[in-house]
Amino acid sequence: MSHCRSLACDLARLAWRDYYLGRPSMHDWKSELDALVAEAMAFAKSLKVEIEQPRPEPKKVVESDGLSLPDDGGSQRDEIRKRVESFKAQQERFMREREEYANSLLRRIRPITKF
């Protein structure tokens, strides 16, 4: 008798043992799966779990006793404007550099391509 150590041999031995002992075969896996799902669903329904939702904290109302709040909107707008201007300047610089590179490349290629 040879000693087989592969997964296929293990599965064959298990199938033979199940057949010999009268257990359900792998052909009946769908019904076993359905039974397992039904058992799990019944178990889940039997559990009584209460989940507490966190309550939002009430917002505190601050009264302004004639005090004016600083207007940060202007400074944020200025910062955004500066960033946009910086971005546009950088994009223009990139365009100039690309055009300069393309022109220098064309100047180098033209003498080679003229016949």
Rank of each mutant, 00 (worst) to 15 (best):
Q76W: 05
M41A: 15
A89N: 04
W29A: 13
L67E: 15
P111S: 11
E52G: 04
R108G: 10
S64Y: 15
D71Y: 02
A15E: 09
S25Y: 11
K82C: 01
D10P: 01
K114M: 10
R98V: 10
R110F: 02
V49K: 05
L11V: 08
K45H: 14
R5F: 05
D34S: 13
L11H: 10
S25I: 08
K114N: 10
Q76P: 02
L105H: 05
V62E: 12
A89I: 03
K82G: 06
D34H: 09
S64I: 10
A38R: 15
D78N: 15
L7M: 05
Q76K: 11
R110W: 01
V62A: 10
F115E: 13
L47A: 12
V62S: 09
P24K: 03
K45V: 10
R98T: 07
Y101D: 02
R17M: 09
E39V: 03
Y101C: 04
G73F: 06
V49G: 03
D28I: 03
I80S: 03
Q76R: 12
C4Q: 10
E99Q: 14
K45F: 11
D72Q: 11
R17G: 04
G73N: 08
L36S: 00
D78W: 06
Y19Q: 08
V61H: 04
T113N: 05
G74D: 01
K48A: 14
R81F: 08
G22A: 03
L105T: 09
W29Y: 05
R77P: 04
K114Y: 08
H27W: 12
E79Q: 12
L36Y: 01
Q53I: 10
Q91Y: 05
V84C: 01
S46A: 15
R55Q: 07
L33F: 13
K30G: 13
L14Y: 06
G66R: 13
R23E: 09
L106C: 04
P24E: 03
D18N: 13
K59C: 06
M95I: 14
R108K: 14
E57K: 15
V61D: 02
F43T: 01
M26E: 12
E85H: 02
S75E: 06
A12G: 02
K88T: 04
E79T: 10
